[in-house]
């Protein structure tokens, strides 16, 4: 009987599972390497190999990466830059999401002459290579007195994030029946009342998607961070890159890896908790409307 079942299991299916498993291991390997390396002492790193488990796990590298590793001439670890990123991300995400919600609502349900053109023009903003706006934006930030400030970075992230947040909300709201708007209008409800009483209660999923998308984008940003921040206001990605490229007194790969995990942790946690929404944002943000 058993033998009978065994032969019935399609060899093809076993192969498929093996291949899927193999690639799962490949995708996980870098994370495994980062984590185990961060727990090893530097001697162990030199004598052992990448895949070996730490023999004598230590949190030395984590402590150093967080509070005393050198990122250029400063040696305060990643902590201050982690908080810089927090101070940049939160206002930028909240502001760009709110603006996007109202923009998307207007573009989806209050069409006027030229509103489609406006949407198209805005959509283009999702695609331009930011190199083409780097120089004039630096000039603008300078003349506003916002060069090398957290406020300046928040502003830049809001400006270039709104194209995406508007796209998300617009495409979501287009799916809500226009009859609802018409009926509410007949009842005398206005622009904001309709938004508050009809659209807002339906909007939780798209708010989650947008917030996660913006959070990930801004937390992970390097280009704006490296161009528009100064020595005290750098976001964590810039600090991580500086930390890795500073080798005062020998390279400490364990500290590099601990620092990299610290920089990746917030977005990874969001992904693990709300992966479904994360994927939805990726595909929505990517596959246009």
């Amino acid at each position: 009987m058993n033998r009978h079942i065994l032969t019935n299991i399609n060899i093809g299916r076993v192969m498929i599972y093996l291949i899927l498993l193999f690639f799962a291991l490949i995708y996980l390997a870098p994370l495994y390497v980062m984590f185990t390396t961060s727990l090893k002492g530097i001697e162990e790193i030199r004598s052992g190999n990448l895949m070996a488990l730490p023999v004598d796990p230590t949190f030395y590298a984590w402590a150093k990466a967080w509070s005393s590793a050198c990122t250029g001439s400063e040696c305060k670890g990643l902590a201050p830059y982690f908080w810089n990123s927090v101070r940049i991300v939160f206002p930028a995400v909240i502001i760009s999401t709110i603006i996007g919600a109202f923009n998307g609502y207007s573009l989806a349900k209050w069409k006027f002459k030229g509103s489609e053109l406006l949407f198209g023009a805005l959509l283009f903003g999702c695609f331009i290579p930011f190199q083409v706006i780097l120089l004039p934006m630096a000039k603008l930030l300078g003349s506003l007195g916002l060069a090398n400030t957290v406020t300046g970075l928040v502003m830049v992230h809001v400006i270039y994030g709104v194209a995406f947040t508007t796209l998300f909300f617009r495409n979501y709201y287009v799916g809500i029946p226009t009859e609802l708007v018409r009926a509410a209008k007949l009842d005398g409800a206005g622009f904001f009342a309709i938004f508050r009483h009809i659209f807002l209660p339906l909007s939780t999923p798209i708010f989650v998607v947008t917030i996660i998308w913006q959070f990930t984008q801004i937390w992970n940003d390097f280009l704006f961070g490296v161009v528009y921040s100064g020595s005290g206001t750098q976001p964590i990605t810039v600090a991580l890159n500086n930390l890795v490229n500073t080798s005062v007194g020998g390279k400490e790969y364990n500290v590099d890896m601990a620092a990299a995990i610290i920089a990746a942790l917030p977005t990874l946690v969001v992904y693990v908790i709300a992966g479904k929404y994360f994927v939805r944002g990726l595909t929505a943000g990517a596959v246009k409307g």
Binding site: Y27, N220, F222, T237, N241, I261, T267, F278
Partner: peptide
């Protein structure tokens, strides 16, 4: 398969 997408290119 998808988690690397949540990580920054710097990491």
């Amino acid at each position: 398969y998808l988690y690397p997408m949540a990580i920054s290119f710097i990491v």
